[in-house]
Design a protein around this nucleic acid. Structure first.
Lengths: 336, 336
DNA sequence: CCTCCAGTCTAGAACGTGCTAGTAGTACGA
DNA sequence: TCGTACTACTAGCACGTTCTAGACTGGAGG
């Protein structure tokens, strides 16, 4: 009934029940050689009967390696959630476990890292969070650090990111290819990689001889910013025919705000997003977007961490992943 | 440089540096009485210099109590993320830590629970996941279990949920109050609490003498379902004037699909959602919805768990929270 | 007969912390 | 002088596991 104060069963309990030593039970649970088939079965049987479960704390304490990787992320950020989701199978393949560290209003990077390292994580993956270089370097001094998303260099930590400059160029190229000239960019502000997307946009516009049409509306990575940008757009004269948004959330906010105002997309205005999020795929949104390679990101992030852990790499490394333009139904040639 | 194989510093290292015993360092770090102010400072100083950090694994192992609560949730579910976010400050107030267990395609409830219990979580909060009664009972036999969201009873576990029946009634009452009669419900299928919302809708319709107008479109809790429901709506004759959606995601999907089809909301059709999610608040969505009390949910969930842990409660308990109708701009009187 | 070996199994020391029971040292009052 | 009370500190076991070093079988080979 109240099994709460009844101590949880330990290896010793299982061992006693089977009539063998603790060490043997340990062997069996770790799947090592050295126990007869019959004993194995009896151990598992006894463990099941007692409700025994290995104690991670004790395992961590005793073992030199924890085989745990910490992942810091913002739970309410959909894109982070997708990366987290992708992390698990990759980590598992290499025999590692992922421990999540949530960043919330009451838990900043330092505090969350503290917790992860307390749990003996061997490396930390920082997902899509823009921080100061000093803070990254400080984190990196405590454990191997992989910064996922932002465009940050440093001699002490690794980075995995998309080629955002190229991604932005793909977006602009696509729009120009359709015949657009007045292409506006909604800016990601200080968001991770926003500077690169900005640069990519500007460069691509110049390349197409559209320098005079470069126009950026300040914003961030939220739906609100897209909705606000809609207002801003309508103050422009002449009206732009296409928008390249900082990310999908922003694009979706813009899309809905425009439709609500009676503007047709892509009829009146074309929209391109960035991320390739789930939202972009939804049938009623069906957003043309620059997809980031999430499985690739997860894989690269974990590989990068493991190279430091298992292969003695010490020099900093940067992985840059290619983006892919996904043309859906929010882009079309401009109304002539 | 390669501080990887250099063992991480322990209490003993700090103690040695200061020239005191391990026990004293332990005292200082736990903020207990019995060390002079001067010694305290020297200990912290030495710890900082060495980069010492208490080892959670060892603490857990040694202490009878871990003061950790496990929270199982689906990272890609926005509503879960909001609950998780709200959990932290509440737990902290009572001196507990939250450990996250992600449910993904490769990690089911059993596996994730296994992990949490391995980390010595004293109780498990299962956020918004519909499972079998048998599985819940089995989980509850391993640790105090609080099921957050679904309407599930059991003698062995606690439940914290919204009064979904009443919430649905609020939605219908509001629509009827505006003059609507042909009110359709998009169904949440097997989603958590969907049955209650269904029932609340049906009851309320009957109460208003609108039994003949009861109509449910099968769906789930996703944007896709809302978008699909839009098609379905248009096959109805006469067209309904209002829709009560299973949740906000579904409502948002519907809203966008309708607007894309050129239907005006609330001009042609009114929409009410359920959840009170962040999305519903966005300026371009501005969805009328039945808000669930997320801070209240978080607080109740943790209180409920702590009653079992700290106050010896053993009989099952159910907390039902009141919902609140938030009228925004997606509802209006029907076109006459 | 002894030796060797593979297959099973065990004793006991870690791992880093918390906690109980205790020890010095000092100050105080009688 | 002693006992008492208090502050500041320490010794050493316990937590549940992993791991090293070795012990004990029975059978094969000399």
């Amino acid at each position: 009934m109240d099994d709460r104060d009844a101590r949880r069963p330990t290896m010793a309990d299982v061992a006693e029940r089977v009539g063998v030593s603790r060490a043997l039970v340990s062997l069996v649970f770790r799947g090592k050689e050295g126990a007869s088939q019959q004993t194995r079965e009896r151990v598992f049987e006894a463990a099941r009967e007692l409700g025994y479960r290995p104690d991670t704390a004790a395992q961590l304490l005793r073992s030199r390696r924890s085989r745990h990787l910490g992942a810091l992320y913002v739970p309410t950020e959909p894109f982070h959630a997708d990366v987290i989701d992708a992390l698990y199978p990759v980590a598992e393949k290499s025999g590692y476990d992922v421990v999540l560290g949530a960043l919330t209003q009451t838990r900043d990077v330092t505090k969350a890292t503290e917790e992860l390292l307390g749990f003996r994580c061997e490396a930390v993956l920082l997902i899509g969070v823009e921080t100061t270089h000093a803070q990254l370097t400080s984190l990196a001094s405590q454990a191997p650090l992989v910064v996922v998303g932002p465009h940050q260099h440093g001699p002490r930590f690794d980075t995995v990111r998309s080629d955002d400059v190229r991604g932005a160029r793909q977006a602009v190229d696509h729009l120009v290819g359709l015949g657009h000239r007045r292409i506006v960019h909604i800016d990601g502000g200080h968001g991770p990689a926003a500077a690169d997307r900005r640069r990519g946009y500007r460069n691509a516009m110049r390349k197409h001889g559209l320098a005079e049409h470069v126009h950026m509306i300040p914003g961030d990575y939220t739906e609100e910013c897209g909705a606000l940008a809609a207002q801003e757009l309508f103050r422009m004269d002449p009206l732009p025919t296409a928008v390249f948004a900082a990310n999908d959330r922003c694009a979706v906010g813009l899309l809905h705000a425009l439709r609500r105002m009676g503007v047709t997309v892509p009829g009146d205005i074309s929209i391109v997003g960035f991320d390739g999020s789930r939202a972009a795929q939804l049938p009623h949104i069906d957003l043309t977007t620059v997809r980031q390679d999430i499985p690739g990101t997860a894989e690269a992030a974990i590989d990068t961490a493991l190279e430091r852990l298992d292969e003695e790499r010490t020099e900093a490394k940067q992985v840059v992943l290619r983006t892919q333009l996904i043309v859906r139904s929010t882009t079309a040639p401009p109304a002539s």
